[in-house]
Amino acid sequence: MSNLVILRADMTMRAVLRRRLTVGILVAIPVAFYFVSHDMVGRSVRSLTFGMSWAVSTVAFFAASAARDLEPRLVLAGWRRSTLVVGRLVGLLALVGGLTALFGVLAPGPRRCRSGPRENWAPSPWTDPTLGRLFTGSPTPARSSLSAPPSSLLVHGPAGQHDAPPRASGNFVAVAGRRSRGVPEQVVEALDRRLPQNKASPR
């Protein structure tokens, strides 16, 4: 990669990171998207990446707008237009890399947490990891506790443990009063038999 591309990328990153609003957007939009569906298996991470792409697009728009004044003069000074564009792109991609690393640490993927027997599950992204603690100050599964009927707390177990996975079992369906959605009784019972850990849960 040429030195000029690196220089332009460096300057793009400096200019972007000096904009407080831009940095706020880069962090806040992905976090907001993540928390909208934080208790849904898989969807939270998809939302996070969607939020990141939205935030980065917005920042790229800001960077391109700022370049409209400067870059024609740089072309007159001897820069190639393509070098400027590639350099700006490389700078933005480097920011995306940093952002991905940041959220990769803060928000672990739910699949890793939710496979295998329930006893072996890692703490859910909402109840345990840093992202949850950062924004709630507590590892309690707050949203589930508030929105679900009191009896559904039974499937959560003590505070700080796991959310119930949406397709986990008839137990969940039964306790949450969703039998009426059309899940056949036999299916629920079959699921209960297949997932021994659910048999221990009170109905």
Binding site: R8, M11, R14, A77, W79
Partner: peptide, 21 residues
């Protein structure tokens, strides 16, 4: 007026314009 990046320092501008030559 304008023709500069408002979020870059003077020396960053020197680098951008000077390296072109």
């Amino acid at each position: 007026a304008g023709g500069l990046d408002p979020y870059l320092r003077a020396e960053a501008h020197f680098e951008l314009f000077g390296t072109a030559t």
